[in-house]
Structures are given as C-alpha cells and as structure tokens.
Amino acid sequence: MRFSLLALACATTALPALADEINVYSHRQPELIQPLVDAFTAETGITVNVAFVDKGMAERLVAEGARSPADLVLTVDIARLQQIVDAGVTQPVQSDVLEANIPADLRDAEDHWFGLTSRARIVYASVDRVAEGEVTTYEDLADPKWKGRVCIRSGTNDYNVALTAAMLAHHGVEETRAWLEGVKANLARKPEGGDRDQVKAIAAGQCDIAVGNTYYIGQMLNDPEQKEAAEAVRILFPIFEGAGTHLNVSGVAMTKAAPNRENALKFMEWLSSDEAQRIYAETNHEFPVKPEVAKSALVASWGTFTPDPMPLTDVAKLRPDALKLIEEVNFDG
C-alpha cells in the first residue's frame, strides 16, 4: 500500500502499521531531505512518505491525536522542537545508537528530540564594502555606523527569534530591547524575504551586511543562477560579547501515535549515521552533529569559530519573551 503526499497530508484516521513504510511530517523543505530519503530507502527498502507542513505542526498533531498517521517530525529550530514536545505529542526514544552518535548537548535530556545538524546564525558581508573584522559581535549590528546598511528577514522568523532569545539569555530584557531598536534603526529596508534574499540585496548594493544562516551560502554557490550573488559576500562569525557564535539545530522527534514505530526508529538512527551525516554536510552544507563526520570542504573553507556555550534548551525557553520584545519594538514596521 502506498500513500501520496496529498493523502498523507490530509489523513485524519490512524494508518495500519506497515512493514515497509514510515510517515514523516516535515518543516524542512522537501529538496533538502530528499537525498536522505532516497539513500535510506535504497539501503533498507523502507519507503518514507513525507508531508511538508509549513505551519501549525504542533496544533495539527494535537488535533489528530492517536489517529495521526505521522511517525516522525523533522523540523528546524530548537524552539519548534521544544514546542512540539511541550504539546505532548511526542514520545521518548531510548537508543544506544542515538546516544553514541549525537552529543548530549544536542539532544533532549528526556530523549524526546534529537539534533541532526547544526548551523550558525552569522553575518553576510559585502566583499567590496566591508573589511574583515568590521563585525565581530552580534552587538555590533546595533552600532550607528551601520545606519542604512543592514538587511534582515522578518524579526518574527524562527531563526531571528532564536537569535533574540539568545541575546536575552546573555543580556536581559532592557539591553536586548535596546539592541533590537538599534538594529531596526540601522536597516536599509523593511525586513523581508528569506536569507538568500539578503545575500542578493547585498550583491545589488541595497545594504552592506545582513544576518543569515551559514548553509544558504553553500546552496547559492551551487546554484548557477545565484552563484554570482553569493560570491559578492563573505561569511563572518560574530559572537555574543564574552561568549560564542549562535548555533541552532535541525532535529527529529517520534510522535506519540507512531503507527510504524520500529521502522521510524531505524530512520532516526540512520539519520545519525556516518552516511546520513555526510549527505547533510555535502548536500545541504550543514554542520554534522556526529563529531567523527567532517564538514564539507566548502564549509570548512569558511573558517573556524567558537560555538556559544548557552544551552539550546535555555534559549528555547526564552522564545516567547523574545517574540514579545520583537513585537513591542515593532521591528518589522
């Protein structure tokens, strides 16, 4: 029996446990995980049905309850992972393989979620108009010298909310509010688009620096239509004053309903394997979470950095407060 993406996306009744299938709700773009799905199916014969769920994943799983067809959730951002866990729709997974492959600081202490990749929230800087060392901290983004020179996507985007939550964890409410107001005052245009659009804006001369995730540069450099724009910027790894560079994760969790639990666990464990981690590194330009797997040559060429030691779970807890501050300063207005 085979289920189309449409059928899976619309399913509201429990599916039978099938020997050769698993069902995944994914917040990740389909093209980013298809190479992983293809490799897993080729190795195991297990078909992975993926339904792309852009918004309301936790709410959907709550509504479906025990009837949910989903075995696993794949998503980006620690806050999204924690939100799904807090909704009570996941189950703990005990696995020696996952514990051996994924460092403890990149998985849930109660075994509800497991990080699969990490990425840094960094600064894209114009090769021609910004010198090395001009931006060394996230706090620098609020410096008046950048007035009219900064681009960024919506402040309420998950990645920017997480960055703001980390700023809150380091500096508290008032300093974070002042930082948000300072960054807003420096914007060259209203927040818009995605991270790739910020790179294109720098290449077009609309701004000189922007905030984005590392892996987008790798994807753009491998896209003939976007390569020229990507070559117009360099990657800078800012830090929080006295700390390190902000990291976030993509991760996986098993749903409480999980009609195909055994095969779902096989997929989770495989995603932490050397082969899957290499695919993440080479195809998606993300940082592998398994320490033994090297970064891609391209990613390694960007240089080294010191990760922020702030626990991701501490950052996730501050997400509501961060979003409130972003809205209070009307960052996107």
Rank of each mutant, 00 (worst) to 15 (best):
P309C: 10
G193K: 07
G333L: 11
V73S: 05
A201L: 15
L298P: 01
A203R: 02
G182L: 11
Q226E: 14
D223G: 12
F237P: 08
I122K: 03
L271V: 06
T90H: 00
P307Y: 04
E228G: 10
V73I: 15
D143T: 08
A14Y: 04
L61P: 03
A14W: 03
Q206C: 05
A70L: 10
L5W: 04
A281V: 07
V329S: 14
G148L: 10
E228T: 15
N330A: 15
T136V: 13
R129E: 12
Q94G: 09
M310G: 02
R153Y: 05
G115W: 03
E64W: 10
E99A: 15
R153E: 06
I239H: 14
K324I: 14
A42R: 15
I209Q: 00
R153A: 07
S272N: 07
T41G: 09
R261P: 10
M1Q: 06
E43I: 06
D96G: 15
L168N: 04
A9I: 06
P259V: 12
P291A: 14
L74N: 08
T214D: 05
D274E: 14
A264K: 02
T75M: 14
A204M: 14
H246S: 13
T214W: 00
I202Y: 02
H170P: 03
R67F: 12
A14G: 09
P238I: 11
G193D: 05
V161N: 01
F114T: 01
A11Y: 04
H27I: 03
T47E: 10
R149P: 09
E59F: 03
D197T: 08
P92S: 05
E228M: 09
R2C: 00
P259C: 15
V48A: 08
A120K: 05
N330Y: 02
K184I: 07
E43R: 11
A162N: 06
R107C: 01
E269G: 03
R234K: 15
A70C: 12
A204N: 13
Q94M: 05
G205Q: 14
P238F: 11
L5Y: 04
A11R: 13
E292C: 06
M220A: 09
G218V: 04
A204G: 11
T306P: 03
I209Y: 00
R60L: 12
G194L: 10
R67Q: 15
F237G: 11
M220V: 05
L163I: 07
H285T: 04
N248W: 00
L74M: 13
T245E: 10
E231H: 05
N284V: 10
V48F: 06
